[in-house]
């Protein structure tokens, strides 16, 4: 998959050296589903959290699906076309979110709000069939800033991020996302409607230092217990002195398959048909 995408992009670059091109500025909007590996990290927390409170929970936390995160994005870019081929570079920015709540039998609730802020640099290229059907290979270099906000909810409607419970906090991490994939688009006049699928590559996963990335961390706490968002809630509760440094959700687990539907509008000189 990866070599196919690189070959496609390289081929398109070479073709643009020898054939006439036109280039246009584009602006767009889209909807994105940000798949990630919820199972090993976040869902392990959910299962251990629900297990820890057991029958004392009126409403347990829900496990996340692989594609629970979704949201909108905006884009700006530049697209070059020649008869039969296209090459584009666009920047997108958007966010996706998912809010999970639990309710304890004693009356307190907890809110877990996960948010991804994504800045993506997408490079794409491929053939244009019948003057309107765009088939492209896609390479994405994405910067994902993830935030997990954990708040205690009170019966009067108050929402606390304060320190009365150690799990409360604003946990953040940064995930570089190197992705490859493909896109199919249909051009209608000055508009391109496309669907794109990319998959994050596990480039550093074998590296002992960089493999896990960084942990989901609340750096603004001053306490003996770990300030990382735990993978296992029960272990974290009992580990009051932070002996287990690996009981955390890592940035590696917050990337995966990305599916996007986008509309791009072209400005400037129209396509050469």
């Amino acid at each position: 998959m990866r070599s196919f995408t690189f070959s496609l992009l390289l081929g398109c670059l070479l073709l643009f050296c020898v054939v006439p091109i036109s280039a246009q500025f584009t602006l767009g909007v889209g909807y994105e589903i940000d798949g990630f590996d919820a199972e090993t990290g976040i869902n392990n927390f959910v299962r251990t959290y629900n297990g820890y409170f057991g029958n004392n929970l009126d409403e347990p936390l829900r496990e996340m699906g692989r594609f629970s995160m979704n949201g909108l994005f905006g884009s700006a870019g530049y697209r070059m076309t020649s008869p039969g081929f296209t090459l584009g570079g666009i920047v997108t920015y958007g966010n996706s979110r998912y809010t999970n709540t639990s309710q304890l039998a004693i009356g307190l609730g907890q809110e877990h709000a996960l948010r991804f802020n994504d800045l993506n640099f997408l490079f794409s290229g491929g053939p244009v069939l019948g003057k309107f059907l765009f088939l492209e290979g896609v390479l994405n270099i994405g910067l994902r800033h993830s935030t997990m906000e954990v708040a205690t909810l009170y019966p009067d409607g108050s929402r606390s991020l304060s320190y009365e419970y150690d799990i409360n906090g604003v946990y953040t991490t940064f995930t570089p996302c190197y992705e490859v994939g493909g896109s199919v688009g249909i051009r209608l006049g000055r508009m391109l409607i496309s669907a794109r699928v990319t998959q994050a590559l596990a480039i550093f996963d074998g590296d002992p230092e960089l493999g896990n990335g960084t942990s989901l961390l609340d750096p603004d706490t001053n306490r003996f217990r770990s300030d990382e968002f735990p993978r296992d809630f029960g272990k974290w509760v009992n580990d009051t002195s932070n002996y287990d440094e690996n009981n955390a959700v890592f940035s590696r687990e917050l990337r995966g398959t990305r599916i996007a539907l986008a509309v791009e509008f072209f400005f400037g000189k129209p396509f050469k048909d």
Binding site: E149, L161, S162, T172, D220, N222
Partner: peptide, 22 residues
């Protein structure tokens, strides 16, 4: 904090003496 969600009154050298305001 980084996300401007809390104001934290620092408790000096004392561990677990900070106070967070939502």
């Amino acid at each position: 904090d980084e996300q401007a969600k809390r104001v934290i009154a620092l408790g000096g050298d004392c561990i677990q003496c900070d106070l967070a305001y939502t």
